[in-house]
Structures are given as C-alpha cells and as structure tokens.
C-alpha cells in the first residue's frame, strides 16, 4: 500500500518545498519508490529545488486534462533512480484540479510507488485542500514563531475535518510536526518559541527539528536538496527525519546552541 504524505503548513515560506524535496530524496535513498507531486499550481517551485526545471515537458495539469500520460509527465531524478517528480503547471490555475481527477492520478501512482509526497501550496484555499484531501499522513511544517504555529493549528483542524479520511469516518490522518528554521541561540535569547512551546501548543508528535542553516539557501539555489549535503546540520537533521518516518527512534539533535570554545572566542571565530 502506498503511503500518501502531504507536506503542509498553512503559512508560506516556512520550508514546505525544501522539506518535500529532502524527504523525497531521503526515502528514495533508502530504496523506496517515491513520487513527489507539486500541488502549487501556478507557482511551481519543486522542480527548481530538485534541479529538474529544464526537463519539464508535461505537468500535473496536462495529465489531469488527458493531454499527456503519467509516464510522459513524470521526471525521473538523475541522482536517485527510484525517485520521480510530477511538476506543477506554471501557466494554469489551481481550478484545474478536482477531487475526482486528482484521486484518479493518485490511484494510478499508488500502483507503482511506495510513497506519494504531496507538496502543498500555502494557505487554506482549494489548492491546499486538494493536496491534503487524500493524505494518509501529514507533515506539518512550522517555524518557531507565533503566526506560523497558529496557521499550522488551523491546517491541523482542516486535516481533522476536511480530508477524505475525516469525511469517510476512517482512521484519522497521522500527523507529524516538522519544526524548521530552528535557532537554539535565538530561543535562548527569548526571540523564538522553543520546541517545547510549539509541541505544547500543537499537541502532535514531533518528527524533526531542522536548524536554521546557510546550507538550505545554498541547496535551494543550486537545485541540490539539502539532505544530500551530508556535512551540514540541516542535512543531518533531515536524515534523522527519514529514519523516524521509517519507524526508528532517533534522538533529537541541534536543540541547544553550540558553545563557543575559548580559542574561537579569543580570536573572534
């Protein structure tokens, strides 16, 4: 059975696409067959992060309208062969998607893939609802600040009431909290909510904490998902996320600010 996972947040710019890309590659590297779907119709970004923007011929909307087959539209990742990307359309609008036709595409994909990762657009409008409707699991991406937490809370409410599982009275969507852009130093200084604060407010299990990192911006611009940067702390944190998604118990890292050593303090390192 394919696991359909939506990466969602409510608020924009918190790291949904970065996380989708990292999780997609991470799962594929573990040998699973993974497809990443960009639901952000009209604001296509996933292909950029994945570094395959020049290989987009057909997109999600073409498939839905019957202008292309799934095989024509799916882009195989050059780094990991078990990963495919279904890009969004940049020219159409989100009204192209309906529950019925999205359902058909997902059903088709479920035949071949183990994991279907849906990268949700921001907001709580039709596009975001479409991305979460068929989900079995949800990775709620949140920054440690009040407005992001509030929006995530709203999305959690939607997951519990507007999804297919909710409508059919099935087992509810499994919720995971992914805290991104976390800066232990700023938490200590009281400028940011702590992991404990966010977990307390949202009351869902913590899947991972991704530290604020220069590596993420560099990765986005170069089209090399940050999880492939195995030296960076963000890359390591995403690795931990993959292990936890696959059921392992991994201790949380990067939760405390690094203490500067005496030499770096003396020489201003």
């Amino acid at each position: 059975m394919a696991r359909i996972i939506v990466v969602t947040s409510g608020k924009g710019g918190v790291g949904k696409t970065t996380s989708s890309a990292a999780i997609g590659i991470g799962l594929a590297l573990k040998g699973h067959k993974v497809v990443l779907i960009d639901f952000d119709i009209g604001l296509r970004n996933l292909d950029l992060i994945m570094g395959c923007e020049r290989r987009v011929v057909y997109d999600f909307v073409n498939v839905i309208n019957g202008e292309a087959t799934l095989n024509q539209a799916l882009i195989k990742d050059k780094r990991v062969s078990s990963l495919s990307i279904l890009p969004a359309s940049q020219t159409r609008d989100k009204d192209a998607l309906t529950k019925e036709n999205v359902g058909k595409v997902l059903e088709e994909l479920a035949k071949t893939f183990d994991y279907i990762i849906c990268d949700s657009p921001a907001g709580i409008e039709a596009g975001a609802m479409m991305a979460l409707y068929y989900a079995d699991e949800a990775i709620v991406t949140t920054n440690p600040e009040v407005s992001s937490v509030r929006d995530s809370d709203r999305i959690l409410g939607m997951l519990a009431s507007r999804s297919r599982r909710a409508e059919l009275g099935l087992e509810p969507i499994k919720e995971h909290l992914l805290l991104t852009r976390y800066s232990p130093k700023r938490v200590e200084e009281g400028e940011m909510l702590s992991v404990e604060d966010v977990v307390d407010i949202l009351s869902i299990p913590l899947l991972g904490v991704i530290p604020e990192s220069q590596a993420v911006l560099k990765a986005s611009n170069s089209g090399e998902p940050v999880i492939l940067d195995i030296e960076s702390d963000a890359g390591k944190a995403y690795q931990d996320v993959i292990d936890r998604l696959l059921g392992e118990t991994v201790e949380f890292r990067f939760l405390v600010a690094e203490k500067k050593g005496i030499f770096s303090r003396m020489f201003g390192g």
Binding site: R150, D151, D153, R154, L156, G157, S161, I201, S203
Partner: peptide, 27 residues
Amino acid sequence: RGQVRSGQQLYAKNQNLVVIGSVSAGA
C-alpha cells in the same frame, strides 16, 4: 476528545461542554 484547533468552533446547545484537550488560540 482532542484539540479544538484554530478556526474551529464548538457549541454545546443546552449542555455543558467538556474538552479533553486544549482549545487553541483562534478557536
């Protein structure tokens, strides 16, 4: 049972309301 999330509204008509969980800001 469970959280009452931001944007959700619960009404106990002619009843008491018991929430086993938290009521989020905006709920």
